Computed example of a mutant assay.
Amino acid sequence: MTNHVLLNNVQHKDLKVITRHGAGLGDEQMYVATFPAEFRTLQAHYPIVFRKAEDGRGFEPIVLFGFQAGENLFLKADGWDAPEIPLMIERQPFLIGRNGEEMLVHVDLDSPRVSRTEGEPAFLPHGGITEYLERINSILFTIHEGLQSNVAFVDALLKYELLESFVFDIELDDGSQNRLAGFYTIHEERLHVLDTEAIGALHRAGYLQPIHMVLASLSQFRALIDRKNRQHAARR
């Protein structure tokens, strides 16, 4: 359940946010949305793929943490086991809401991160915002701009038929079989045979680098499988 409300320094003057990462804090997610400006930092740690948007008409890039719903192989007892954390995780429990054209910060009061007794305060004793909330505002703006940029980026990929579905079969060390399906990646062969006009258009739009970052991130599937194997071994 969610309970999104407009954040304000009167009703929420005592609001604190638990910023550590772990079980029970909303981090048990298989993936979150991402955007091209994040690809360079994330590709060194996570696979970046695409999924069909909820309306079924478009696609969105996502960063994978596991192979099944609710699985996050980067969660450890002492926190998040990677030096870079996607902004869609870092922004919790805040999000952007709209009042007409105005963008406003909302908070999910039902989030397990929301507290009155521990964590980072959102507001100063006399009502001003804290450095923590300033950082959240910056993160939310970056996310908003990034998600907006996804539309043109994905349109370009579709224009040049650069998205293809894939199925990833995984055999773990214990012999168990797993399959990752329903996702899409860059069609590398089609990318390599694009003519100079198409390559030039992608370059001018700033899309060649994020395309190659997506391809580079696929090497992280091996590391993700290793994490899955370690998890299975620890449970035996």
Rank of each mutant, 00 (worst) to 15 (best):
L158D: 11
G146N: 02
L208N: 00
G79A: 08
I143W: 12
Q209I: 15
R40E: 08
G182L: 06
E161R: 14
F221G: 00
L218Q: 11
G206E: 05
N150W: 03
T41S: 11
Q29L: 15
L7V: 03
F153M: 05
D174P: 11
I48K: 01
E28L: 08
D81C: 07
L191P: 09
G127N: 07
T196C: 00
E38Q: 10
A205D: 07
A77S: 15
F166W: 10
H45R: 01
H126L: 13
F94T: 01
A53I: 02
M103T: 02
A181Y: 07
G56H: 06
L191C: 06
G128S: 13
V114M: 08
L133A: 05
I199E: 05
S176Y: 08
P210W: 11
L133K: 07
R236E: 06
Q11D: 15
I85V: 12
L157V: 08
N99T: 04
I139G: 04
D110K: 12
T2Q: 14
D195Y: 12
R40A: 12
T196R: 12
Y31I: 02
N3L: 11
K16W: 13
I211M: 03
Q209M: 15
H232Y: 11
R40M: 08
A33V: 01
Y184Q: 00
D81R: 10
I199S: 02
L87A: 00
S219I: 00
A82Y: 13
A233Y: 03
V32N: 10
H192Q: 14
K13A: 15
I96N: 03
A77P: 02
